[in-house]
Amino acid sequence: MHLTGPWALEEDLRRSFDLPAWARRAYLLRCPAQRAAALPPELRGVDPLLDAFPGGVPTGVEAEALGHLRAIARRLRGAVRLAGTGAVVVPDADAAIDLTVLAPVWLDHDAGLQVLGQVLPAVRSALDDIPDDLAGQELEGYMVISDLGDGDLVEIEASGLAEVPIVLRGTDWAAGGVIGYQIRWRPAHPELAYRDRPPLRVRGARTRAADLIEHAAAALQALVGGEIVDDDGFLVDPGDLAG
């Protein structure tokens, strides 16, 4: 693989490539094509990136490269133009709302419940759902659940990580072990929430969940330190969060 750029996009070039009007810079990635079988008919229309490869689904290093490009485009609110079909895929940046706080400090169950109860509605512990015969066992982590109504939940799972995430490698404090506080939206209807174009009411619920997730991440990070990352592993500036 070989990545070059950024290249300036003049208006005539942007028009010839059928790029969005807001596009100003572009990078070029050259990657070997590695394809599997054609996309099954029942999966067409589910993922616009896969739809751009009707003759064979990318696999191996090509699939990995495309995954990274889409993650970068989502983070930067950009787009990916694919050679061959010329399809332009614009990831929905507002769809990636989950966050993780990576920290050197373990926040015990009761403290976590108290902190999150200050920024999230209807907070309870998942330990309340554990059968009595398992309640006395030592646990390696815990989960806090916030009920947003209409079946939507936000889950916060605290646990130690087996490996140091790439984004923290070389960080002195991470060498002593990293605790992950994963903050996830659990929509009542994932089949609608994770569509390319979810219904308006689902987008409204997602926006509310995103705001609460940011408040939760900000509250946790203020207490335990460390860093905040999105689901693609990119660092998030706490100053950009709602909290």
Rank of each mutant, 00 (worst) to 15 (best):
H2N: 15
L3A: 12
W7S: 06
L9D: 06
E11P: 04
L13P: 00
S16H: 07
D18F: 12
W22P: 00
R24N: 04
Y27A: 03
L28Y: 01
L29I: 12
P32T: 02
P32S: 04
A36Y: 15
A38D: 00
A38S: 07
L39S: 02
G45A: 04
V46C: 15
V46F: 12
D47I: 05
L49F: 02
A52H: 00
G55Q: 11
G55R: 13
G55Y: 08
G56W: 10
G56S: 05
G56C: 10
V57F: 08
T59P: 02
G60I: 10
G60W: 07
A65R: 14
L66F: 04
L66R: 09
L66H: 08
A71S: 13
I72H: 10
A73F: 03
R74D: 04
L76N: 01
R77W: 01
A79C: 00
V80C: 05
A83D: 14
T85R: 03
P91G: 06
A95V: 06
I97L: 14
L99A: 04
L102R: 13
A103D: 05
A103L: 03
P104L: 08
P104H: 04
V105P: 04
L107T: 06
D108M: 03
A111P: 13
G112F: 00
G112H: 04
L113E: 05
Q114P: 00
L116A: 09
L116M: 03
A122L: 12
A126N: 12
D132F: 01
L134E: 12
L134R: 08
L139W: 09
E140I: 04
M143T: 15
M143A: 15
I145T: 12
D147K: 05
G149Q: 11
G149T: 02
A162N: 11
A162P: 06
A162K: 15
E163D: 13
V164W: 12
P165G: 08
I166R: 14
L168M: 07
G170P: 03
G170S: 01
T171Y: 03
D172C: 10
W173Y: 06
A174H: 02
A174E: 07
G177Q: 13
Y181E: 12
Q182D: 14
Q182V: 14
I183R: 07
I183E: 04
W185I: 02
A188K: 11
P190T: 04
R197K: 15
P198M: 11
P198C: 12
L200A: 14
R201P: 05
V202I: 14
R203G: 00
R206T: 09
T207K: 15
A210E: 11
L212E: 08
H215I: 02
A216S: 15
A219Y: 05
L220S: 01
Q221G: 08
A222F: 02
L223V: 13
V224Y: 07
V224H: 08
V224M: 07
G225D: 07
G226N: 09
E227W: 10
I228S: 08
L235F: 05
V236I: 03
P238I: 02
G239V: 02
D240A: 15
A242D: 07
A242F: 10
G243T: 00
